[in-house]
Amino acid sequence: MTLSPRTALLSHWAKQPWLWSFFGALGVYGLVLVFARGHGAWNVLTTALAFSAFTVLVGIGQMFVITLGPGNIDLSLPATIGFASAVAMKVMDGADSRIVLGLAAAVGAGWAIGTLNYLLIRLLRIPPLIATLSSSFVIRSVGISYGRGLQIVPPPGFAYLTTARIGGISLLALLVLAFSAIAALLVKRTVYGRSVLAIGQNMRAARLAGIPVGRVRWLTYTLCGGLGGLCGAFLAGFTGGSSLDVGAEYLLTSIAVVVIGGTSVAGGMANVPGLWGGALMLFMTSTLLNASGLGVGARDLFTGLIIITVITLAGGMRQARQG
């Protein structure tokens, strides 16, 4: 109360955990520019935005799941992305007229996988980690037999849409930005968002506060699956065809951006803007390591070290604030 407005503002900003992820991204961006001697600054940024769009899209879903509380995590995302990309391409069948249908099918497939995950968790009382892991293998197997011999290219219109740029900025990035805004509203201002946060803090208390815990969890897993499905379809358009392994890297990155972005892994606290900071930072990092010409081993090593460093720093911040 005795704080001056300026320090109050400062302490308000210092409490925004997502800020650090943007600082990190900015720092690595600076290093990239140093490496490139200042060339292609705009190009690197727009490319980063374009690629981050996919990461953020799945990151939103993973964030809601992780916010449900300890043990909640969707490990089936890569399988979902791969499967949905195959579904989208098959339904679109190379025809521009079927783009919407294909997108709906991909989201529907993701939604169904989310439902399956939730049913496993609920009916078999399996920890989400085991449930989503087990289901991911089933999905993979289904995906393999479904996508057998699939070499369908995306409809030209869809390929165009997923790679189009407006003023240099990818259309998809703008779309995902809009999605992020909706997700942020969902967290802060809706009954659903509050319910997710409450469940993440104390499931039993949430139930006794009258929150329909089962329905909220189900919705959350289907939300995550649906966004994964959408991401799969977009990736198929972006990369020019579906592939089962297209989602492989999104398991780690979806978890990493959620954590780097300041969402609590213990649940009950979500942060949407941080997803962008985390995604940009990860992309900049791999750009930097590519530019420096190190081998695959060194790149993996550095990526791992950076994740641990970031999480150590972020965890430290959180601790300092609580203390």
């Binding site: 780690l252 978890i255 990493a256 954590v259 892994v265 081998g295 695959v296 081993g297 060194a298 790149r299 993996d300 090593l301 550095f302 990526t303 791992g304 070290l305 994740i307 641990i308 999480i311």
Partner: peptide, 16 residues
């Protein structure tokens, strides 16, 4: 999360 990061570290070291 820490061990997800570590899995990259170990994999990188193994590749080296």
């Amino acid at each position: 999360v820490v061990t997800v990061g570590m899995s990259f570290v170990w994999l990188g070291l193994a590749l080296l």
